[in-house]
């Protein structure tokens, strides 16, 4: 790891100030991706501003079907939230399968979303749930937030403080994990609303990160059943291809995971 300067913020305002004073600063939430990346000398922020002790960024609030999750809420807290489970168990299930228990104790929803790793789980959920990403200065719809591999709409110094969404009528997440990294090789979050609106968001497979699949959405809007997926063609040409899985295989996994996610609802 290169030299860096650690700062601990106690409020969002203080964090923003600290970031303003830094030359090449980075916010540090759970650090479960950032610290290993720095350890491998693949990132070299001059300053780290620790958000883990900001009380206003923590906690899960469920009001009817409206959900608000503080950005510094850990995966473990999301996975085990009884309140959230009553309205959106799919998100609890997703959080409970991110990394391993020790990672879930530190990693946060805000950190995951801000990093937008193309194989991370949360971005698929945000997109499928039509979530709003709340920052210190504005609200951004998930559809506008994820802009490419490790790229988001966040501006310099902008902090995600929370995410909010209305829980859909039905939702599920299925992922096929990379046998080595255990990140998603294809992860599909499906969500159906009472008005018939269906969203299918895919992570781990797309060559430019998380994406929605209009054809799968159309087919499932018409018929919310696993069988509806069978006749949809999932094109592999925009899929990632690497040592572990070709684009064609990922395309197959997207279809299979979609089918299984629908079955699970």
């Amino acid at each position: 790891m290169y030299q860096t300067n650690y700062h601990r913020a106690s409020s969002v305002q203080e964090a923003v100030q600290m970031m303003g004073a830094a030359t090449e600063g980075k916010y540090l939430s759970g650090g479960m991706t950032l610290i290993p990346t720095m350890r491998q000398r693949l990132a070299a922020p001059s300053d780290l501003i620790d958000l883990r002790h900001i009380a206003e960024m923590k906690g899960i609030a469920v009001n009817g079907r409206s959900v608000r999750i503080g950005a510094a809420t850990t995966h473990e807290e999301v996975a085990t939230s009884a309140e959230l489970r009553t309205v959106c168990p799919a998100l609890c299930g997703l959080a409970g399968h991110i990394g391993d228990p020790a990672v879930r104790h530190m990693g946060t929803i805000g950190g995951s979303i801000a990093n937008n790793d193309p194989a991370a789980d949360y971005p698929a959920a945000m997109l499928a749930l039509d979530a709003v990403i709340v920052t210190d200065r504005r609200e951004i719809k998930a559809g506008d937030f994820f802009t490419g591999l490790f790229e988001t709409a966040l501006e310099d110094g902008e902090i995600i403080t929370a995410v909010r969404f209305d829980a859909p009528a039905k939702a599920a997440y299925q992922k096929f994990a990379n046998p080595a990294s255990r990140y998603a090789m294809a992860g599909v979050f499906v969500a159906k609303r009472d008005n018939g609106d269906v969203r299918v968001a895919v992570t781990g497979a797309g060559s430019s990160g998380v994406f929605r699949h209009p054809d799968l959405e159309a087919a499932l809007s018409a018929n919310w059943s696993p069988d509806a997926v069978a006749n949809v063609t999932v094109d592999g040409s925009d899929m990632l291809s690497d040592l572990h899985a070709s684009a064609a295989y990922r395309a197959n996994l997207v279809k299979v995971m979609t089918k299984r996610a629908v079955s699970a609802t």
Partner: peptide, 16 residues
């Protein structure tokens, strides 16, 4: 080397 860490070299875990 494409398999230079546990991110790419699949080690057997308990659930395998």
């Amino acid at each position: 080397l494409l398999t230079a860490s546990y991110m790419d070299y699949a080690m057997p875990r308990a659930d395998d």
